[in-house]
Simulated scan of single mutants.
Amino acid sequence: MSGSWQDYIDKQLLAGGFISQGAIIGTDGALWAKSDNLNVAQQELVTLATNYANHEYFQANGLTLAGTRYIFLSASDRVIRGKKMKQGIHCIKTEKAIVIGIYDETHCTPQQAANVVERLGEYLMQYGY
């Protein structure tokens, strides 16, 4: 594994053009890196991280990031998905991090966005993150 956390945002998450905004946070909600255009509040990250396994929380409250409230779509042990109109959010949890990708359906399909986010998450898991 090489590069800075910001490199993973810029060169892997955003570079393909499918993800418009993104972040990597610790499982405690600490911000590791984010795209320049993502104006996220620390409390939003902590709420996401601390409730990640509590799907009922997101069913009741949605996912809020950068002031946008996404409707909860689905979740598994590692992945959470949400949507607001043509915009979607896809998150994957690794051992030590959560990779967050926000996309616009006018530029990609939800599956294309999921592939980008999950590929980065799987890469981090290979290296113990």
Score class of each variant (00 low, 15 high):
Tyr103Pro: 01
Ile92Pro: 00
Lys83Asn: 12
Thr109Met: 10
Tyr8Arg: 06
Gly3Trp: 04
Gln43Phe: 05
Gly17Gln: 08
Trp5Tyr: 12
Ala49Gly: 06
Phe58Arg: 02
Arg119Gly: 12
Ser4Trp: 02
Thr50Met: 11
Lys93Thr: 05
Glu56Met: 13
Gln111Gly: 14
Ala49Arg: 00
Ile92Lys: 06
Ala23Cys: 09
Asp28Met: 06
Leu38Gln: 05
Ile71Gln: 14
Gly82Pro: 01
Leu63Ala: 04
Arg78Thr: 13
Gly16Glu: 11
Gly88Ala: 10
Leu120Ala: 07
Met125Pro: 02
Gln6Leu: 12
Phe58His: 04
Ser20Gly: 14
Val79His: 05
Thr64Leu: 06
Ala23Thr: 03
Glu95Arg: 14
Arg78Tyr: 08
Gly128Met: 10
Gln111Trp: 08
Gly121Cys: 05
Leu45Phe: 03
Glu122His: 14
Pro110Lys: 06
Val99Gly: 04
Gln112Pro: 07
Asp28Glu: 13
Thr109Lys: 11
Lys34Leu: 06
Phe58Ala: 03
Asn61Leu: 10
Asp104Lys: 07
Asp7Ser: 13
Ile98Thr: 03
Thr94Gly: 07
Asn51Cys: 09
Ile80Asp: 00
Gly3Ala: 06
Ile98Gly: 00
Val79Lys: 03
Leu38Trp: 04
Gly17His: 06
Asn54Ala: 13
Gln6Arg: 11
Thr47Asp: 12
Arg119Asp: 15
Cys108Ala: 15
Gly29Arg: 01
Val79Pro: 01
Cys91His: 01
Met1Arg: 11
Tyr123Trp: 15
Met85Leu: 11
Ala53Pro: 07
Gly29Ser: 07
Ser2Gln: 10
Gln42Pro: 02
Gln126Glu: 15
Tyr52Ser: 04
Thr68Asp: 08
Arg81Glu: 13
Val99Lys: 05
Val117Gln: 05
Ile19Gln: 01
Val46Tyr: 02
Phe58Asp: 01
Leu45Glu: 01
Ser76Asp: 13
Asn39Gly: 10
Ala15Phe: 08
Gly82Trp: 00
Gly82Cys: 05
Ala75Arg: 02
Gln87Pro: 00
Ser35Phe: 08
Tyr70Val: 03
Gln126Ala: 14
Leu48Cys: 04
Tyr57Phe: 15
Gly121Asp: 01
Tyr127Ile: 11
Asp104His: 11
Leu73His: 07
Ile102Ser: 02
Thr47Pro: 02
Ile98Asn: 00
Ile19Arg: 01
Leu48Gln: 00
Leu65Gly: 01
Glu118Lys: 14
Glu44Val: 01
Ala33Ile: 11
Ala66Glu: 01
Met85Thr: 13
Met85Ser: 12
Ala41Pro: 01
Leu31Thr: 02
Lys34Gln: 12
Val46Gln: 05
Asp36Ala: 15
Ile9Ala: 02
Ile92Ser: 03
Ile80Ala: 03
Gly16Ser: 12
Ala23Met: 06
Gly3Leu: 04
Asn37Lys: 12
Leu124Ala: 04
Pro110Leu: 11
Arg69Ser: 14
Asn51Tyr: 10
Ile89Glu: 00
Trp5Glu: 08
Thr27Glu: 04
His107Asp: 15
Thr106Leu: 15
Met1Tyr: 10
Ala97Val: 07
Leu45Trp: 01
Arg119Leu: 13
Ile98His: 03
Phe18Gln: 09
Val40Pro: 00
Thr64Ala: 10
Gly67Cys: 10
Ile100Cys: 04
Tyr8Lys: 07
Ala114His: 09
Val79Ala: 08
Val116Glu: 07
Ser74Trp: 09
Thr47Ala: 09
Glu105Ala: 15
Leu63Pro: 00
His55Ala: 12
